[in-house]
Amino acid sequence: MCTTCGCGDTELVPVELHDKILAGNDRQAAHNREHFQAHGVLALNLMGSPGAGKTAVLEATSRFAEGRLRLAAVSADLATDNDARRLAAAGIPSKAITTGQACHLDAAMVHHALDGFPWDRADVFFIENVGNLVCPAIYDLGQAANVVALSVTEGEDKPLKYPVMFQKADLVLVTKCDLVPHLDIDLARVDDALARVMPSPRVLRLSARTGEGMAEWFGWLEEQRRPIVQGKGAHMHVHPHEHTHSHEHRHADGTVHSHPHAHAHQHPHEHAEGQAQEHAHGEPQSEHAHAASEKHEHQH
């Protein structure tokens, strides 16, 4: 009702929102990220054009891992599960996500794919996105980092043409470098183009065929895994805590009452790395203080 005169007419109300349109996807992505972090899994969103060599990079990663890293992958494709079958043949437990009409993966599709798939046993979990340099860039999937594959056959100015994708990349893999002698490509011009769309470009030159750059690629993977593995350990560790609760009790005169009280206690803990670490931990309801490997003690 109109509040000016109460005439019963409707009113036009402007509402200021400033909400991210993809807020729903971002929430789902945050949830995925919690899963990955809780299991100490490095999740990577691998993007690039169709034919940039994404699947070949993963096959080579498996080949050169020599058991150092446990890998797993989900692979998105519009219509086939060919990539997932290639990855399985290369020894990477994998699952296809057939996106149908969708030109990109979103966080809900990834979450759905995790169900019943042993992603949590991997050290590195690759999410091989739909081959597309536009749409996948803006959907957070819960990954720790974005890796973009750019093959040497694609042209030096690709980054300038698709700045959004490359700006979101944490690492660019320049793939198929074994072909450079057969092409007119100038790799310095690729680097220059990347520097114009990425403020802190990280670029590795790879050849899945010859193994060129694989050592650097494994170095990068290890570097990315370090905080995640530590984070998992810390999650299971020591967190100072103190909490309040009440006990109801009955007195001889029949009255029942309770009083809140605080106490500190200590729990034995599971440790991923077998060492104690102090850290603070935001928990919704309580603040905890416990030291590792000590008995549970209540002080009332």
């Binding site: 009113e11 036009l12 200021e16 700006q167 403020p199």
Partner: peptide
């Protein structure tokens, strides 16, 4: 390294005008 300005990569619903009873 340069820093990106606010809104450069944004995608937001800023305002809606609603008819309310």
């Amino acid at each position: 390294p340069a820093r990106m300005g606010e809104g450069s990569d944004g995608l937001t619903l800023d305002r809606v005008e609603l008819e309310v009873p």
